[in-house]
Structures are given as C-alpha cells and as structure tokens.
Simulated assay, not measured.
Amino acid sequence: MVLDRPVLLGNLVSGAVWLAVPVALGAPVLALVGSAYVVAASVFLAAAYGRETLTRKQEALVWAAPWLAAVAVWTVVLATPVDGTSRADWTVALWAGLVIATGCYLGWQLLALAVRQVMTWRAAAG
C-alpha cells in the first residue's frame, strides 16, 4: 500500500488543529473519538490518493466514505446517553450529525488543502 504523503500529513495536521477545539472545551472523550476518526480517515484518504489512477466514481466514493463515517460518528455521539440521561432520538441525532459532520468535514479538508499548499510552496522554495 502506497500512501500519498502530502495528503496524509495535511489531514493529520488539519485534524490536530480541529481537535484542539474539544480539548479546549474540556471534552477529552470527544477528542479521543475524533482522533481515532482523523487517523483512520487520513490513512484511508492517503491510501486512496496513493493509487496511480482514480476514476471519477472512485474519487467520489473516496470523498463520500469519510464524510459518511463522520455522519455516523456524530450521530452515535449525539444519540448516546451520558450518565443515564436521555439524549436526542435517532432522527434528531442523525439530522444534527449530518449538519455537524458536514461542516467539520469540509473545514477539515479545506485546512488540509491549505497545509498541503504550504508544504508544496516550502518544497519549491527549499
């Protein structure tokens, strides 16, 4: 398996920046769940982009798979009871998970793109 190094590093750095938010808010469990997701999704994306060629359908699936995983993670997090208290029902949790995951995923990937651009500029300058 060949990993695309800029994709991997860009996603890991971006993920670390985004995961500083739950840490700062005092939600270490959310940061831990997010860390597992970021590492797994980053390796998946780097492996996918490490391939020589991707068809349009494959590329769409490569983008959709981590997004759908993020929706699933957020849905479970939002619907899981904490300390015996009831949480949102699954329909509300799915809707909220969809909204939150989409925003987080887009923000994560935009920052990862910026990190990859900086890496490219530094490599060209150095």
Rank of each mutant, 00 (worst) to 15 (best):
R51T: 14
A79C: 01
G15W: 00
V23T: 12
T85N: 13
V115P: 01
L32I: 11
R116T: 09
A112N: 03
L106K: 02
A79G: 06
L113N: 02
M119W: 06
V43P: 05
L61M: 06
L111N: 01
L45G: 05
V82E: 13
I100F: 06
G126T: 14
V92I: 09
V21M: 11
R122C: 06
A72N: 06
V21F: 10
V33F: 04
L45C: 10
V21E: 12
L30H: 03
L3C: 04
L98W: 02
V7H: 03
E59A: 12
A93W: 00
G34L: 03
T102D: 05
L94V: 06
L106C: 02
T75C: 01
S42L: 07
G107N: 05
L9H: 09
D4A: 13
Y37S: 06
W90C: 00
G34R: 03
A69M: 12
E52H: 11
A69Q: 07
V118R: 12
L32G: 14
G50R: 11
P81C: 10
T80P: 00
L111K: 02
D4T: 10
A40F: 09
W74G: 00
D89Y: 00
A125V: 13
L68A: 10
L106I: 14
V92H: 03
V2K: 15
A125P: 04
G15F: 01
V43D: 08
Y105R: 05
L30Y: 02
V39F: 09
A65F: 10
R51S: 13
G103A: 09
N11Q: 10
V71M: 02
V21Q: 11
A60F: 03
P22Q: 04
S14V: 04
A125L: 15
S35N: 10
A64R: 04
G97T: 01
V82W: 10
V13L: 12
I100T: 12
